[in-house]
């Protein structure tokens, strides 16, 4: 179980990385922490000509604190968030979810940007970042573009990267003081792939009410205006206003036909709401 031979490059900055990506005569792969790509390389599922290691690029490990949001470089790790080496603006949502990603040894190298780009539907970041309304910024030959994180995943293992583009940062909005969030994932064992994920954000001050049904084998189901499911966020007990019937309909409308899958995903969402708290 050893990778094919490949060239390796360690660019000093994003510009140099993009220059390497521009060579369309080669199969070029970007690697950040390598915790998803590493296994695929070992198994020869991925056979690049050139591996571009972006984990040394300073810009991608920077954190920019803005009035309404915070911007994480793509190479911020799960452990950086879990240990709060980077500020938390989500009332504990991101550190709490980070703590449940795979295993500690993986979290010490695995990155937010890498996870989102790997686009595994069962991964945590795509679901929780969709719930809090994060955006990703991609840089390529045509400059930067910023899109909602849920639009970044096209399907299983497929991110919306145009030729020559790479993910450079993730922008997370600062949640309001009375914001509440919840996250529940169903795994067969600790640290393994989730089979159902439910997540929500209720942030009445910012007028945000979002619901995510994740681990669907494809893109997560994201309801960006979820008032009909969880109300406007002013109820004391959100679980009492949660409309599980409407959630089941939303899931069915999204094409999930298997009744057991529908059930577990509705329950995951309901439990995310039941366990909601404001930090």
């Amino acid at each position: 179980m050893k990778p094919v031979n490949f060239d390796y490059a360690r660019p000093a900055d994003v510009g140099a990385a993009l220059a390497l990506l521009a060579d369309d005569t080669l199969a070029v792969k970007i690697m950040a922490g390598g915790q998803s790509l590493g296994p695929m390389l070992n198994m020869r599922l991925v056979q690049p000509d050139l591996l571009v290691d972006i984990a040394g690029i300073e810009e991608l490990k920077q954190v920019t604190d803005r009035p309404d949001e915070i911007v994480f470089g793509a190479c911020i790790t799960h452990a950086d968030i879990e240990d709060r080496r980077v500020p938390d603006v989500t009332r504990g949502a991101l550190p709490s979810v980070a703590n449940g990603i795979a295993y500690r040894a993986v979290r010490n190298r695995g990155t937010v940007g890498g996870s989102l780009t790997h686009a595994d539907p069962s991964a945590d970041w795509i679901s929780i970042l969709s719930a809090v309304g994060a955006r990703v910024t991609l840089r390529g030959p045509a400059g930067n573009r910023t899109i909602a994180v849920e639009d970044y995943m096209l399907g299983a293992l497929e991110a919306d990267l145009r030729p020559g583009e790479m993910l450079v940062s993730v922008t997370v909005p600062k949640l309001g003081r009375s914001a509440r969030w919840g996250y529940y994932k169903s795994c067969r064992k600790t640290g393994e792939f989730a089979h159902a994920i439910g997540a929500f954000l209720s942030d009445p001050e910012r007028g945000v009410s979002r619901v995510v049904i994740g681990a669907t084998e494809s893109r997560p189901i994201v309801v960006t205006d979820a008032q009909h499911l969880i109300g406007d966020g002013r109820a004391e007990r959100l679980d009492r206003v949660f409309d599980s019937h409407a959630a089941a309909e939303a899931i069915a409308a999204a094409g999930m036909a298997d009744p057991i899958d529908r059930q577990t995903h509705v329950v995951a969402l309901r439990r995310a709401i039941e366990r909601a708290y404001s930090a």
């Binding site: 296994p39 198994m43 064992k189 600790t190 640290g191 393994e192 792939f193």
Partner: peptide, 14 residues
């Protein structure tokens, strides 16, 4: 099942 992600061995919490 060609990996331990497909073939689940019980871990400490199981």
């Amino acid at each position: 099942a060609s990996t331990f992600a497909d073939y689940l061995l019980p871990g400490p919490t199981e």
